[in-house]
Design a protein around this nucleic acid. Structure first.
Lengths: 325, 325
DNA sequence: TTGTAGGCGTTATCAC
DNA sequence: GTGATAACGCCTACAA
């Protein structure tokens, strides 16, 4: 391997026959004497010099690393991927890079990864908190999608209760009274809020919680519809649960008979038969909003913590407009 | 704001009444004298000291930052999100954090972001190259999903040609001869390879390329099926194109008459009517493999660049098994 | 305007 | 084994 050492400012200074500090100034945008600036630029090009941003952070007065950390449950999940996209957009506008990691809903891993980010001296953190007790952060932090427990900090949430309310009200306006609720882990804030919205809209049917993934939902829906007094409509309060319900209805041949509204949109939802009516979230907006709040803090805003709520949209496609038989 | 300064090793040393170097050694795992080690640990706990990983990187002999950069077309796209997930898994095993950014298929942005990562002194880079000329990297780099142009480096690819071949062979084995090909940007390596696979399996029907997104595909399929000598089967060579084709077939009421196989799987594909037969990729494996190759390079492997190919799977669900009418 | 010197938080090299 | 000291690459007073 040739693998020759990276050129440093010192090398540039030597080649341009100026002092180190002159190079530093020029690199940081000070025009300086035109002839020197040109010699320095030539030396930079010749050597292929690139400033070491980490070393610069160490010495600089503001100590800004121009990087932030994003801690989600799972980047591989399209919902969190969209959040990440929103965060990254705003970070990029600010010249910041985004470090991302997945907690897999494990509080211990969440702490470990937050520590790894802190050790890299990120300027701030955006966190989707697990349902353990959230450790108070040592850097500016914004929580997104779920509120932290026992911590008072900036938070960006979807209007979970409102979205669920609109879904159930929609079903009721189409004549349904026996509307079942199917939700995921009851310890999650989002699941609780969606149940609250269901109730507030008059939902008083069967409630099934703690469904873990699509096949659990498949089984639950199958049992529900083959049991006594089956519901005439379903409200599925999460992504994968909706997918399981769609499959179950299809397996029973009931997709045109039992109404269904899901929380969170899915690709191909419009191509199903019938089209899938959903409460759509805005994950990219969630991410953007969280990043904007974070950078306000990084810039020194010390006001009281705020909570922003991002609205949902009811997307009508057919499955939610079936009337009870 | 109180915003008191972060404690440093010096603070720990002072409180524990030992020298700075002793603290450094203990922090880095040297046992040392038990009584001193205990005093140091107590001081660390009391002050809430956390080592500054960036400063450590600056001075350390190996200069390893324990961070890598991941540059994809768009983290918000579920395919790349899954790649990111795979990369992050392996990085985490190694104690590395992953910085991620989206090029949006823009070569200029790709260069800019690669520069931002290099300035942060990442140990290596994983890149989904845009179709511009790839700039030779100054840090260990592995390319993923597409090969770089004019650069000889480690690359991890899906078996695009093989996957397309199996799709078309599958359709032919069900009696189809007029099989249309619908693809995206012809400058993309993946599109070309999939077309090559189509041809190698005997595909000689209408070829439509450069479709940009789902609605363009919708229009193309509609035109195709309402034109002269319509195909009896479609092979859609990308995600969004498949979605557009599904919608078009449904709008025409032809979903049970015209066969369809898509490249790349989609959520809910099994819940469609008929179920959607696809060539499934393994994006998480793509990411994991790329990360493993990268860390081998980071560890000093200087062998000739390798290309790894990740196989696809034909997932049979119904739409690809329709026989010509 | 430019150069000189000191220091950011840490690790590496020495004496002891 | 521990401790003093130089150095990593860079920025920032301050002096020239």
């Amino acid at each position: 391997m040739p693998d020759t050492r990276r050129p440093t400012m010192k090398d540039v200074a030597a080649l341009a026959r100026v002092s180190l500090s002159t190079v530093s100034r020029v690199v940081n945008g000070d025009p300086g004497r035109p002839d020197l600036a040109r010699r320095i630029q030539d030396a930079i090009d010749l050597l292929g010099y690139e400033r070491d941003h980490t070393a610069s952070t160490l010495r600089r007065a503001d100590r800004a690393s121009a990087s932030i950390g994003l801690l989600v449950a799972d980047v591989g999940n399209p919902f969190f991927a969209a959040v990440a996209r929103g965060v990254e957009e705003i970070a990029r506008e600010r010249g910041s890079v985004t470090m991302v990691a997945s907690s897999d809903e494990d509080p211990a891993r969440e702490r470990e990864l937050a520590g790894a980010f802190a050790a890299r001296r990120v300027d701030g953190l955006i966190v989707v908190p697990t349902d353990g007790v959230t450790a108070p952060a040592r850097v500016p932090t914004v929580y997104v999608d779920r509120p932290p427990r026992h911590v008072d900090a900036d938070t960006v949430l979807t209007d979970n209760a409102g979205g669920a309310h609109s879904a159930v009200a929609h079903l009721r306006s189409h004549g349904h009274r026996r509307i079942a609720f199917l939700g995921d882990r009851s310890t999650l804030h989002t699941a609780g809020e969606r149940l609250r919205g269901y109730r507030s809209a008059g939902g008083d049917g069967q409630v099934i919680m703690d469904l873990d993934g699509s096949s659990a939902a498949f089984d639950a829906v199958t049992a529900l519809l083959t049991g006594d007094e089956p519901p005439t409509a379903l409200f599925t309060a999460q992504n994968l649960i909706t997918a399981g319900a769609v499959r179950a209805l299809r397996a029973l041949g009931s997709q045109h008979r039992v109404a269904l509204v899901g929380f969170d949109d899915l690709p191909l939802a419009d191509a199903l038969d019938p089209g899938l009516t959903v409460v759509a979230q805005q994950p990219v907006t969630l991410g953007r909003t969280a990043a904007r709040l974070l950078f306000e803090r990084v810039d020194g805003n010390a006001a009281a913590p705020r909570t922003e709520v991002v609205p949902t949209t009811l997307v009508v496609r057919g499955s939610g407009e079936i009337r009870p038989g």
